[in-house]
C-alpha cells in the first residue's frame, strides 16, 4: 500500500479562540516496502499526521490516499482501512484492558474479522504473541496487568499485529525502554517487515535509531514536511537539522567534526558504515605512507 498525502491541512478547535493549526500543507509519499522514519519535535504535527492515516481525525483539507482507500471520499471504508493499517500508539501498554492476554490480543480480530472461527482466532493470537516473543501457553490466561513493563508493551503490539496489517505505524515504539528492550523491539520490527507487513512507519526522537533502521525518512517542522529523503541524505544536511533544534545521530556529529578537520567521509551515517569508512581511510593513509 502506497501512502500519498498532498497539501494536508488540519486545525484543532477551528473557529474558536483556541484554534491551533497542526498541519499546514503536508506533502509526503511513502512507498510500499519502506521502513519509513518520521522525525520532528513534539508539536510539529507528526502525531496529527499519523492519526490521519488511520482515519482517527476527519480529513478537512488536502488529499490523502492510503493504498486504494481515498480518505477524502465520504464513502471511504474506515474499518477496512484500519484493518490494513495497524497503529501502535506511544506507550501502547496503556490501552490493555481485557481479563486475559489472549482476550486482549483477540480484540482486534473480533472487530475486524467477524466471521473468523474461534480456533482460527486462537491460532492467530498464538502467532502474534510468538512474533513479539511471548510464550503463548505461559501468558494466554494471565492478566495483562500482571506482566512486566517490557512484556506489556509486547502484548500490546501483538494486539495490533494480530490482524496482520499491511502497513504498521508505530509512534515511538521504544520510548521508556532500556537499551536491550529497545534493541529487541527494533529486531522485532525488522523481523515482520517484508513479510505480511510490507511497510513500517516509525516515529522516533532517537536519530541513531532512524539512521540505523530506516530506508527513508521525513522531517516534520511546524506542520509541514521540510525534508523527505534517505537518512543518509537527511543527515548530510545536519546543519539544517540543528537549526530546526533537532538532534543528529552520533555518527553525523562525528562526521561533521571530521569534515571540519578536512577529513571527508562519504558515509550513510550507520555505525557499521562509519566504522568501515574510517578503517578504510586509516588503511589508505597507512599504505600511502608506506609507498
Amino acid at each position: 500500500m502506497r501512502i500519498v498525502a498532498k497539501g494536508l491541512t488540519y486545525t484543532y478547535n477551528p473557529r474558536s479562540p483556541f484554534a491551533v493549526q497542526a498541519l499546514k500543507g503536508v506533502d509526503i509519499t511513502i512507498e510500499e516496502g519502506e521502513f519509513f522514519g518520521i522525525i520532528g519535535h513534539t508539536g510539529s504535527g507528526k502525531s496529527t499526521f499519523l492519526q490521519h492515516l488511520n482515519a482517527l481525525v476527519r480529513l478537512t483539507g488536502g488529499y490523502l490516499k492510503v493504498g486504494e482507500y481515498d480518505l477524502s471520499s465520504k464513502k471511504c471504508d474506515v474499518l477496512g482501512l484500519r484493518a490494513k493499517v495497524g497503529m501502535v500508539f506511544q506507550y501502547p501498554e496503556y490501552q490493555l484492558f481485557a481479563e486475559t492476554v489472549e482476550k486482549d490480543v483477540m480484540f482486534g480480530l473480533k472487530n475486524f474479522c467477524r466471521d473468523m472461527g474461534e480456533e482460527e482466532m486462537r491460532s492467530a493470537v498464538r502467532e502474534a504473541l510468538e512474533t513479539v516473543g511471548l510464550d503463548y501457553e505461559e501468558v494466554r490466561d494471565r492478566s495483562p496487568f500482571e506482566l512486566s513493563g517490557g512484556q506489556k508493551r509486547r502484548a500490546a503490539i501483538a494486539g495490533v499485529i494480530v490482524t496482520k496489517p499491511e502497513v504498521l505505524i508505530l509512534d515511538e515504539p521504544a520510548a521508556g525502554l532500556d537499551p536491550l528492550g529497545k534493541k529487541e523491539i527494533m529486531q522485532l520490527l525488522h523481523g515482520i517487515h517484508g513479510g505480511w507487513c510490507k511497510t513500517v512507519v516509525i516515529v522516533s526522537h532517537d536519530m541513531d535509531e532512524i539512521a540505523e533502521n530506516c530506508t527513508r525518512a521525513a522531517v516534520f517542522s511546524e506542520g509541514k514536511v521540510v525534508m523527505e529523503d534517505t537518512p543518509a541524505a537527511i543527515f548530510a544536511r545536519s546543519d539544517e537539522l540543528l537549526l530546526l533544534g533537532l538532534d543528529i545521530p552520533v555518527t553525523a556529529k562525528c562526521a561533521r567534526i571530521l569534515k571540519e578537520r578536512g577529513i571527508a567521509l562519504d558515509t550513510d551515517f550507520t555505525s557499521d558504515d562509519l566504522i568501515r569508512k574510517v578503517l578504510a581511510a586509516y588503511a589508505a593513509r597507512k599504505e600511502g605512507r608506506g609507498c
Binding site: 552520533v250 556529529k253 567534526i257 577529513i263 593513509r285 597507512k286
Partner: peptide, 15 residues
C-alpha cells in the same frame, strides 16, 4: 561523538 572525532582525527594524522 566529539571525543570520538578527535580520536579518529589524531590517529588518521599519525598514520
Amino acid at each position: 561523538a566529539e571525543d570520538l572525532a578527535e580520536e579518529i582525527c589524531a590517529s588518521l594524522q599519525k598514520a
